[in-house]
Amino acid sequence: MSTNSASPEAIATYLHNIRERVGQIVVGQDVVVERTIIALLTSGHLLLEGMPGLAKTLLVNTISKALHLDFSRVQFTIDLLPSDILGTEILDSKTGEFRTHRGPIFTNLLLTDEINRAAPKVQGALLEAMQERKVTLGSETFSLPTPFLVIATQNPIEQSGTFELPEAQLDRFMLCHRLDYPTIEEEEEILRRNMNLGVEKKGDGAVARTEFDLVTDDAVGTPQDLIDAMEATHNIHVSEVLLKHVVDIVERTRKHPELELGCSPRAGISLLKASRARALIHGRNYAIPEDLFALAEDVCLHRIRLSYEALAEGRTAKQVLQEILDASIS
């Protein structure tokens, strides 16, 4: 185990401050904030499934500002081209030479809205860059900034005119979290805060303020704090018994008769990494089964595929995974 320069208390405070800062802007969505931090600490990528208007963009924007990270957002559409994301070489008419124009992927936090609306070649280009963390433009290869995190969103209901991500590409996402609507209390708080936003005067005019105006540029920590937290995540102890738990869950998904496709080894790796990060966020220096079970759905559900017979019987992947997890403790 390598030594970590920052104390565990300092890291815990740093992570707590991030969540607190986000909580000042975004009401509820604690789990999404936690999952985003997990993805950030483990260099994974996050896929968010949820309806529009659940403050996904605001959340990512707030986190990026709180962490002093660059942030870009791309709305995926059918006519989007790989070069619109990755960048391209442009002929400079003044010099007569090609000039590299870097796309929005050259950032720390990239929010790709409605990833399933883009054509497969665009999805492929993005997912390849996510995996390799490099982009080749012309004959030159560029490394993406560090940290690099893609947070993709997709609408689970409206599927017409979309290109569903295949399992191999879904596997690139470390976590896939399904967003729920806020609770009644949270909804009331959202409305209450929104009512108090007021109007911002600009020059001779004025504009109604939005939640985005509340996002300030002052970060809760330094880039070094994030590096320390990432190192601390790596140093979280994982016992042999916890490894057995991970293997047991992964193995059960592969042997379940209603699943055509079980979890890949990458799923096991992701589950372990995410458990470490969750343990750190919860102030422990070792991962426990609670971390595994809390993250199992987000890590495993998008990686499994139901068999035809199970689909015909109206079963859902969530039901089957729940049965697998229940069976593992009985």
Partner: peptide, 14 residues
């Protein structure tokens, strides 16, 4: 062994 320890823990939870 570790396998049984893991199972023991899961069964206690169950």
């Amino acid at each position: 062994p570790d396998n049984d320890r893991a199972q023991l823990e899961r069964l206690i939870i169950g």
